[in-house]
């Protein structure tokens, strides 16, 4: 289970003028295993920020993020030590960011293999699985040994997604996974997400795309003035 409890996030800017910006205010949500939960709202409404707070990229200012790990232990991700978080990030979390964080100068198939190798998979098996997923999202074989920096926007996005989910994480955080994808690719990606869901992962996604969201989400929250409203 993932439970976000009364979470607020404020930025204290010291550069330029001293300024405080609040992007989330007393937010609550929950995600169960095997559930896809959608966050819907306009750009800049705080969807990404919430995902980042959960992943630890942003430091939560107030509130708790309760997460039960594979061993059944409960953690508060808002107040957790770095080594435990590192372990969870490697072993249990997957994060698909909105922007294309491609690792330069490594072939696509090797980029994808790395998270599996980190988990103890052999390089052969990792490469095999990476290629399976690359096919699934329709990235042509000719690109598999190329540097991702040479890919198109849509190809990079698909690569990003696979990178985030290739280890079948227990908790998946998706930031606009279907933005900039053509309909075929979109369908492929949604299929992958459904596959994850069926394996029991908890999936929390920020979606611009109502269509896509409606296909796969079990539950959705609207982001309204830095808070969330559960949509029935």
């Amino acid at each position: 289970m993932l439970i976000v409890n009364n979470l607020s996030k404020t930025f204290n800017m010291h550069v330029g003028a001293e300024k405080t910006i609040t992007c989330l205010d007393s937010v609550n949500l929950s995600v169960e295993p095997g559930q896809v939960v959608a966050l819907i709202g306009p750009s800049g409404s705080g969807k990404s920020s919430l995902l980042k707070c959960i992943y630890g990229t942003y430091l939560t200012t107030v509130g708790n993020i309760y997460y039960t790990d594979a061993n059944g232990s409960e953690h508060d991700l808002a107040n957790i030590d770095l080594q435990t978080m590192r372990h969870l990030r490697t072993r249990e979390f997957g994060y698909v960011s909105q922007f294309f964080h491609v690792i330069p100068r490594i072939a696509a198939v090797d980029v994808l293999s790395q998270p599996l190798i980190n988990r103890g998979w052999s390089s052969n098996d990792s490469a095999k699985r990476a290629k399976e997923l690359l096919s699934k999202v329709g990235i042509p074989e000719s690109l598999w040994n190329m540097y991702p920096s040479t890919f198109s926007g849509g190809e990079k996005q698909r690569l990003n997604i696979i990178y985030g989910i290739i280890t079948m994480p227990r908790l998946v955080l998706l930031d606009e996974p279907t933005a900039s994808l053509d309909p075929v690719s979109k369908r492929n990606v949604l299929d992958l997400i459904i596959e994850l869901k069926e394996q029991g992962s908890m999936i929390l996604g920020a979606f611009h795309d109502y269509e896509a969201m409606r296909v796969i989400a079990d539950k959705s929250y609207h982001v309204v003035t830095k808070n969330l409203e559960l949509v029935a």
């Binding site: 204290n12 800017m13 550069v15 980042k52 630890g56 990229t57 942003y58 430091l59 770095l82 978080m85």
Partner: peptide, 21 residues
């Protein structure tokens, strides 16, 4: 001190913010 992604995207200290910017 923190994860590199946190230092880069949510720097807390004024000096870190200066560096990142």
């Amino acid at each position: 001190h923190g994860f590199t992604d946190q230092i880069l995207e949510d720097p807390q200290h004024w000096f870190t913010q200066t560096l990142v910017h």
